[in-house]
Design a protein around this nucleic acid. Structure first.
Lengths: 216, 216
DNA sequence: CGCTGTCTCGTACCCAGGTACGAACTCTCG
DNA sequence: CGAGAGTTCGTACCTGGGTACGAGACAGCG
């Protein structure tokens, strides 16, 4: 059975273009079109498409809000919305993800990516425009735990325990209770960790834990 | 002028498949094939392709190492390597990005994505397989600063300054010097911040700063 | 004008955090 | 078995962090 797609965009020409591209595919079927967010939500509830192509900028209820509404109302569960927009502003990407979108395309992406994005979304996977992916990767790489300096002598298991506790903001007293040891023991461990990491206080230990991906 | 592509994969069938797919495109030209990492590096230096499709698993020098070598030797500047692999293990993605890769494809991706990935890489952009993108996005969304509870009463500019300093691991003494105020002032501000954030100590302030995206 | 909020500084006190020893016990490993 | 590493605990001491006051200077605002 084909993937059923709903197209939501305020420009009729864009909708027609999308429909033309998608209907060239045998396993994709366009089941409806919406011209604004309100209509998109209503049609999604009625038609239950597998995938919704949603423009961000639309009159009245915009694409982000519409996606939030769909996510909130339990329709389309799980939600397979591919956001489509002309500009790839970071805030939009953030907002789209938060709204539960599954994919993010720029309109200059070309037909192939559109088709692939629909296929991916149908499986619950996500395809993101290359231009945006580049920034996403930069974001990912910058926070690469491997870029964080590792201690010369590795931390022992017990020391890792106290580091995690410190990174949760626990006091020494809380740590000694959660690890079921005495207070001097906690202090000993923290002292060792400080020496190994070159940290000057517990806050620097917490920072290291976050940067290195220990705390999450 | 067409995009010149080098294919590096130890399996002849895979290379032939890639070549077939890519040569169907008018603006893509396959200029060479390599069967291992060593050969890939030598050919890349010699042929100067616009884009290199690089398998991760290859005998001898693997794709990751080869990419590192290319990045280090100044060849292909900027580096346009699309990693190709059968499995999308997180560590591979991480390592590939660190090595300077520009794109990451699973071999089950289909011809369209391969072509689009080459086009994207030629422009310095990145295309990532949907299956991997999904995890990448989860990573991105989980650290969304908007998910962090914001204080009821907003922090004043000066308070934000001390929060940032705390999140850098500075002591009160260092803060009062870097902000050019007295020590009691710093303590006053930190006290106010603690009340507003509901933090019990400076470490929790630092944690909040990292979660909310203030500290980077 | 007086009110309010912010930023600033001071003094005094308390305690959690950090340092510096020493010393058991339990492992593993050569 | 002896050596070393890791974990545990103790005691003593000092400093930095945190709290509780009060108060002056300055800005914007009704």
């Amino acid at each position: 059975m084909p993937t059923r797609v709903l197209i939501a965009d305020d420009q009729a020409m864009v909708r027609a273009g999308f429909r033309l591209i998608l209907e060239g595919e045998p396993d994709i079927e366009v089941v409806g079109e919406a011209a604004d967010g309100d209509q998109a939500v209503r049609l999604a509830r009625e038609l239950r498409p597998d995938v919704t192509l949603m423009d961000i900028r639309m009159p009245g209820v915009d694409g982000l809000r519409a996606t939030e509404l769909l996510a909130g109302s339990g329709v389309a569960d799980p939600l397979h919305v591919v956001m489509v927009t002309t500009f790839g502003l970071d805030e939009n990407v953030h907002a789209a993800l938060r709204a539960g979108a599954c994919g993010f395309l720029l309109k200059d992406a070309g037909p192939n990516l559109l088709i692939e994005a629909v296929h991916a979304a149908a499986h619950g996977e996500a395809l993101v425009s290359p231009a945006i992916t580049t920034r996403l990767l930069a974001h990912y790489a910058r926070r690469d735990p491997r870029n964080v300096p590792q201690p010369a002598t590795p931390l022992t298991p017990r020391e890792l325990d106290v580091v995690k506790a410190v990174a949760r903001g626990e006091t020494n007293d809380e740590i000694c209770r959660s690890l079921v040891v005495s207070l001097p023991t906690v202090k000993t461990h923290i002292g060792a960790v400080k020496r190994k990491l070159g940290a000057r206080n517990r806050t620097e230990i917490a920072i290291w834990a976050w940067e290195s991906g220990l705390a999450r």
